[in-house]
């Protein structure tokens, strides 16, 4: 049985691949993202993902909302002042000053519009894969995590298991492609298999999405972080690159300009199966307890 948590150099090897190719992944540098959504469209075009609803969500320019069975790349848009005023501790007092009141040219330069393209993290320890009862989800030779459409029976277990809320079961009428089964980013398994770049990275005009060997991407990410910090961008931080994090590091890492939750990412994701052995122990104990309890109920004399 493969490791459930902690650092792991190549999950492909762990999954039993004989000397696999280098682990592949993404480094998404949100500091150069221009929110053009070319990645979203390219992904849908290449993977023939159905339209995901024509609704105006009012969340800035984001009308996609979140990753889903029919959205494998999602660009988040966040409007915020860059330098929060000093007195922003929440004391529950509705502040009297309202935006717009002070919003004139001189304060506007403080305004930030963050954009970030989210995707499946292809976790080193992938909860979705761990809990999949059919083996439909599997670890590819590239260390990525992919659903086999022809095997998934739509049990839906991977959905609540993912600590990033990525994978979902596709809803729709019976003619909808792959309806009823789990869908998510495949890291373009078909493309990278033949040495191609994933569609989203290929389409990105600013190299915000960088595809490559995870080891090399980690270095690039660190370098980029250093540059930005030298330029005084103190809010820059890396996300998902550390092999010590709760999922053993992800195949898709990010450079963010604010806390993860601002982008809808969990601040401290943990692969749920990390605690599974302990859970099994508890379950066994409980089962035995029930057995014993029942025995007692019968032996415990009386009518």
């Amino acid at each position: 049985m493969s490791r459930l948590s902690g650092p792991l150099h190549n999950p492909a090897t762990d999954a039993g691949w004989e000397d696999p190719p280098p682990r592949k992944g993404f480094f998404t540098d949100t500091s150069v993202c221009i929110g053009c959504k070319a990645c979203e469209v390219a992904c849908k075009e290449w993977n023939d993902v159905p339209e995901d609803g024509l609704n105006l969500l009012g969340s800035s320019y984001d009308n996609t909302g979140a990753l889903s069975a029919s959205t494998w790349r999602h660009v988040a848009f966040i409007e915020q002042p860059a330098k929060p005023a000093a007195n922003t501790v929440s004391l529950g007092m509705p502040t009297t000053q309202r935006p717009g009141d002070t919003m004139d040219a001189s304060t506007l330069t403080d305004f930030r519009w963050l954009m970030s393209s989210d995707v499946c993290k292809h976790c080193t320890h992938a909860a979705c894969l761990d809990v999949c009862p059919t083996g439909s989800l599997f670890r590819t030779e590239f260390g990525t995590v992919v659903v086999q459409d022809d095997i998934c029976n739509g049990c839906g277990y991977c959905v609540p298991a993912c600590p990033f809320g990525v994978i979902d079961r596709r809803a729709g009428d019976k003619n909808t492609k792959n309806v009823g089964i789990a869908q998510k980013c495949t890291l373009c398994y078909d493309r990278i298999g033949v040495g191609e770049t994933p569609a989203c990275a290929k389409a990105c005009p600013t190299e915000s999405i960088q595809f490559g060997d995870v080891d090399e991407l980690r270095e690039r990410a660190a370098a980029r972080l250093a540059t930005l910090q030298d330029q005084g961008v103190s809010t820059a931080r890396l996300y998902g690159e550390s092999p010590d994090d709760g999922v053993g590091g992800s195949g898709a890492m990010f450079l963010l300009l604010d806390e993860p939750e601002v982008y809808g990412l969990p601040p401290d994701p943990v692969v749920t199966t990390r605690d599974l052995p302990d859970m099994w122990k508890k379950a066994a104990l409980a089962a035995l307890g029930l057995l014993a309890g029942a025995a007692a109920a019968f032996l415990g004399g009386g009518g």
């Binding site: 095997i151 049990c155 277990y157 596709r170 009823g180």
Partner: peptide
Amino acid sequence: LGRPSRFVNMLRVAKPTSPM
């Protein structure tokens, strides 16, 4: 199940990491 007809796929594997 999303695809009840495929229940049997549950029996393809025995995975201690999958409570299901």
